[in-house]
Nucleic acid binder design. Structure first.
Length: 583
DNA sequence: TCGGATGACGGTTCAAGGGG
DNA sequence: TCCCCTTGAACCGTCATCCG
């Protein structure tokens, strides 16, 4: 019950709707009256018992509502004109007089993270705060900056600081939602996905309207969307300016206009100064809830506890503390070998907008610059209990063995096992090959093209790789259909027909001079019995060498290349119709 | 396009049914 | 008859992607 995610808002961005949501907690307010009337005079909440219980809940002098009373559930497919929660009725939907459960949950998250409602962690109900009451009573849509409750709420919400700060550091240019998403929250972890900057290079090469439209509106990870929402709030207050970016693409006469680029405004810079504290004014205390420290990750409770513990340790000292001290304290709390996890938690917390400064070279010192409040670890048995310990252990081991690559890539282990993250897996593999291997990569996708291409073009070393990624929980067995698909890609690349279907002429992304090609499958793991036969079959048909590479090994390879233990030429030598093992 | 809306996934809960 | 255990379906929370 109390494990619900809070603090990250995906759907909601209309302030009037937020006011309406908050007013559900204010007896006799306009929206409260509307909700009561709807419950009394209509049957959009079909069950009379539910209707009555919602009315009873609203009729208290202090309105306290639990999660299901606020958020409810989705109405059945055959009865889309019904709903079952106060939060759903509080906000008018796009296609109905009410919103669905997910949108209601997002409005609840929005109201909570701005401090307009607060929760009792043990009983788990929500009620109005003084700030929420002020926000609703002072609300004038045309003058949000005068709504002190709103301004204070936004300043205390760490991700707002994060976005403003990132935009300030890059204020010579407009920044895309993808770049912001990659640098927001626990980016890379399940629930914080980002499509990354590569989407832009894909847009630069797209050659048909259908894909172009899709890329502009449909390709977006959760973190990218969190960033877009926050920027949309801030642009309503003039703290941030939306500044569409024109992308050149030689397949179209006019540049492609990308709307989701942002730049900080003068007012935003002032707010940033207020957050950090200017002269006699103290810095703003940031509200960090336990529920925002992980969202969809498998071990979210474990991760939230771990991160909250780290913050508490940092908070307990007024000055900077050594890495060794943190690690020994974490060990006492039941988190052994924390040295390998500290970098991820550190980056994630900073990317949430919590300022932690580091100093020192070989051994780092940490100092919590932000003042934080509201962090309560719920009382639970087995506070360090770890679900799916095997996978977490593997990730831990990989972090230990790959100190020189971006620790966030370890999430590839999880992503590679999740069908629903197939697209993210594709993106992340290409990203890893580019950033850590130093290969040039191109994302493709679509039915008639491989997922991505990678190549190197140096004086001594030049080859291209055709890549297919498979995000399968139980591994990939290279069935005949997939062998045939790869053979077709290789043949197409060899023959380069002038007529092509679907994603046309994808091979043009290889530089013309490259003559040596390879193929590669990347997945969580491979059931090895049939793999080699399949790879050999593809070779026998095409005379092109290939391999398979699992999510763990691709990370070890990155470490070897990063530390110059092998180079790209040697990497090319690994394609021998086998599964690649670096160690 | 923006501001949600939708279908899906992975997990949990719960009740029915079977065996001892 | 009672109790425990298994099974599977309904339910729930949370996206990641889609779209009027």
């Amino acid at each position: 019950m109390r494990d619900h995610t809070l603090g990250w808002v995906q759907n909601s961005s209309n302030f009037e709707n937020l006011r309406n949501f908050v007013e559900a907690f204010v007896p006799n307010s306009k929206r409260w009256n509307y909700i009561m009337k709807t419950l009394s005079e209509t049957d959009i909440v079909r069950d009379p018992d539910v209707r009555q219980s919602l009315k009873t809940a609203l009729n208290q002098s202090v309105v306290k509502l639990n999660f299901s009373q606020l958020v409810g559930t989705r109405s059945p497919q055959n009865d889309k004109n019904s709903c079952n929660a106060i939060g759903q009725i509080a906000v008018a939907g796009q296609r109905r007089p009410f919103v669905d459960d997910w949108s209601a949950a997002c409005f609840l998250r929005w109201a909570e993270c701005l401090g307009f409602v607060k929760t009792d962690m043990e009983a788990y109900w929500f009620k109005l705060t003084d700030r929420g009451r002020l926000f609703a009573s002072d609300f004038v849509v045309s003058n949000l900056n005068d709504n002190e409750a709103l301004v204070q709420g936004l300043m205390e919400y760490p991700p707002v600081s994060r976005i403003l700060k990132y935009l300030k550091e890059n204020n010579s240019r407009a920044v895309s939602k993808f770049e912001l998403g990659q640098n927001l929250g626990f980016s890379g972890e399940d629930g914080f996905t980002s499509m990354g900057q590569s989407t832009l290079s894909y847009l630069r090469r797209v050659d048909n309207m259908k894909d172009r439209k899709k890329l502009l509106t449909d390709v977006e990870g959760s973190s990218d969307k969190y960033a877009r929402m926050i920027c949309s709030w801030l642009s309503c207050l003039g703290w941030v300016k939306q500044e569409p970016f024109s992308l050149e693409n030689k397949n179209f006469k006019d540049p492609i206009k990308c709307p989701w680029f942002y730049r900080i405004e003068f007012r935003g810079e002032n707010i940033l100064r207020r957050i950090d504290g200017v002269s006699i004014h103290p810095s703003v205390e940031k509200y960090v809830s336990w529920n925002m420290l992980a969202t969809k990750a498998k071990n979210k409770v474990f991760l939230r506890n771990r991160r909250a513990m780290l913050l508490n340790i940092l908070k307990s000292k007024k000055s900077s503390i050594t890495e060794d001290y943190i690690i020994s304290e974490m060990e006492k709390k039941g988190f052994p070998d924390y040295i390998y996890e500290l970098p991820v938690d550190f980056i994630g917390l900073v990317n949430c907008g919590i300022e932690i400064e580091t100093s020192g070279v070989s051994k780092k010192n940490y100092f919590l610059r932000s003042k934080i409040k509201g962090l309560i670890i719920p009382q639970q048995k087995n506070i360090t209990y770890l679900e799916d310990a095997k996978l977490e252990k593997l990730k831990h081991e990989i972090r230990r063995k790959t100190p020189n690559i971006d620790p966030r890539y370890v999430e590839l282990i999880e992503i590679s096992r999740s069908k629903s993250l197939a697209k993210i897996f594709e993106v992340q593999v290409a990203d890893l090959l580019q950033k850590e291997y130093g290969l040039e990569t191109t994302l493709l996708g679509g039915g008639w093209a491989p997922d991505s291409l990678a190549f190197v073009e140096d004086a001594g070393c030049s080859y291209g790789v055709i890549i297919d990624t498979k995000a399968y929980k139980d591994g990939f067995s290279l069935p005949v259909s997939e062998q045939d698909k790869m053979i077709r890609y290789i043949e197409d690349n060899k023959n380069r027909p002038t007529q092509s279907q679907g994603n046309k002429f994808w091979w043009r992304n290889f530089p013309e001079k490259i003559e040596d090609f390879k193929f590669l499958f990347v997945s969580s793991k491979f059931s090895n019995s049939s793999i080699q036969k399949g790879l050999e079959y593809i070779f026998s048909r095409t005379q092109v060498h290939g391999a398979v590479l699992n999510a763990e090994q691709i990370l070890y390879g990155a470490e070897l290349i990063k530390t110059k233990k092998i180079n790209l030429e040697e990497f090319g030598g690994f394609f021998k119709e086998k599964e690649i093992y670096f160690e």
